[in-house]
Design a binder for these strands. Structure first.
Lengths: 275, 275
DNA sequence: GCTGGACCTTCCCCTTGGGGCAGGCCCCAG
DNA sequence: CTGGGGCCTGCCCCAAGGGGAAGGTCCAGC
């Protein structure tokens, strides 16, 4: 069957078919030597239709190529993951749209709650490194593993949670640094730091933090962080404070994410030091 | 404030800011004449942050430009529409993913039901025209208006519903034609056609149609049509029939969409003549 | 006043997934 | 055998920037 007929029956444009031939995703079963005409066979329609469906879902061609070469079960599994990803993305986008609408109405609906907490002077054990966006969570896992293996004693109470400080943007290209911290009892800090390679000890002065509860880690999408930032910015604005800490990172300021570990995975909050 | 600082505070890259300046979406409040340096002011941050949020939602720059120049209420309205569109797109995509998964499992789940109906010989009043995808529904509205204004008598029963025949692909570039049809009593057809400009009368021979109920018009997304096609193709395959009618349109065949008008908007079905 | 380094400028090429068009073969029905 | 439609390659184009080169600016420190 010629490219035109195959195109009609697969709902893929001839142009797309030529591209897929070129990149090896869907090669015609025969190519006439002297004319260059492409000829396809009916059994190729199934693959072509799967490709067409995946492209309609905006799956990149590279992923399509990987997916159509999997066996049935693995492909179904991958599509399941794709579906969950679509769900999560959509939910987060929906939250962002709703927040923008409320913003335009000058309403507070969908605005996350901002609260302030006092943080006493405390001794921290820290692991600090430059990381890219993906690496931030890896660093966290590494830190948590180190902390667990060393059996570090815990500072009790709300000021004892593990947290991460983002000293710089961790986005496309500017790579942190990110510092993971764990409060420990004052009299043991230096000894502990000496005992665990990679960790350093420092004392954090007492201060106040404005923070936003973000809910469970599993329910968060990329679009939730701008929402938290927005809430903090508005909060600062209403009190006549500068929003410096949110966008730039002067010498001794950095946004911080605290992990409240629980059975069902960590609850997060997003804080910025004020004073 | 320089482009670098504005970039950090708005979370828009300098590259993007230069582009937005170039297209007039977000011009710096001052551009140094001799150096070309761009300088922004704090009040511009609000607009910049809205742009950033919209771009995160993949709203095209042209739409962003339109949206940010609307007043509050209109912008909120537009965002509401955007949210509904996101919902509909996501729901349709979700249905497509689920159908693909079931397909890979060789399950019938999520497969639309195919049924067959007998259509008797009938006289039709038709309006046929080449249209692009957007124009197909406009043609339908036009047809329905003409039909209503002329007060055409109705052929009673299930074979009396208005329907549209797609004689060719109505997609990117191939533009139809599409023919809207309304069955009328045999003895009045010619007289009626003569009385209404633009309409032609013809007799459709008796035949059978395989069809898929599509549900209410309002709940349909673009991804639902491939699902219907898929169900019909599978149905044809199981009976050893050709699926010709679904992808090509020989002289006397065409896929047809029937409108079952009701209070809550029309229910649609998707049919292909067999025989 | 000078200098170094951070910051800024324009310019050009690259990306993804094709669309559109030009110029030129090819194939097949009449 | 000829016409018209189908097909080929090759080139440029789109959005929405990213990457980097080559060079101009700004300012703080000396």
């Amino acid at each position: 069957m010629s490219i035109g007929e195959f195109s009609r029956r697969s709902r893929l444009s001839p142009k797309a078919l030529r591209l897929y031939d070129e990149i090896g995703l869907l090669a015609p079963s025969r190519v006439e030597r002297h004319s260059g005409y492409r000829y396809y066979t009916a059994p190729q329609l199934e693959r072509a239709r799967l490709v067409a469906a995946l492209r309609r879902l905006d799956v990149p061609l590279a992923d399509v190529a990987r997916l159509v070469d999997l066996d049935r079960a693995a492909a179904a599994e991958a599509l399941g993951a794709l579906g969950r990803e679509l769900d999560a993305t959509h939910a987060a986008r929906r939250r962002l749209v709703d927040a923008l609408i409320d913003d335009l109405h000058r309403r507070r609906g969908n605005m996350k709650e901002v609260d302030v907490r006092e943080v006493p002077e405390r001794h921290l054990l820290c692991l600090k490194r430059h990381v890219d966006p993906a690496g931030a969570w890896d660093l966290g896992k590494e830190f948590i593993a180190v902390v667990r293996d060393a059996g570090l004693p815990r500072l009790e109470g709300p000021a004892g949670e593990t947290f991460a400080i983002f000293w710089g943007e961790v986005s496309q290209d500017s790579d942190g640094p990110v510092e993971w911290c764990r409060p420990v009892p004052a009299d043991e800090a230096d000894a502990l730091a000496a005992g665990v390679p990679g960790l350093s000890a420092r004392v954090e002065p007492a201060h106040r933090e404005a923070y936003v509860a973000m809910g469970n880690y599993a329910d968060l999408g990329d679009e939730d962080w701008p929402l938290a930032e927005r809430a903090l910015r508005r909060w600062a604005e209403e009190r006549g404070l500068s929003d410096e800490g949110l966008s730039t990172t002067p010498d001794d300021l950095g946004v911080r994410i605290t992990y409240h570990f629980a059975e069902e995975g960590p609850d997060l909050d997003f804080a910025v030091p004020i004073d």
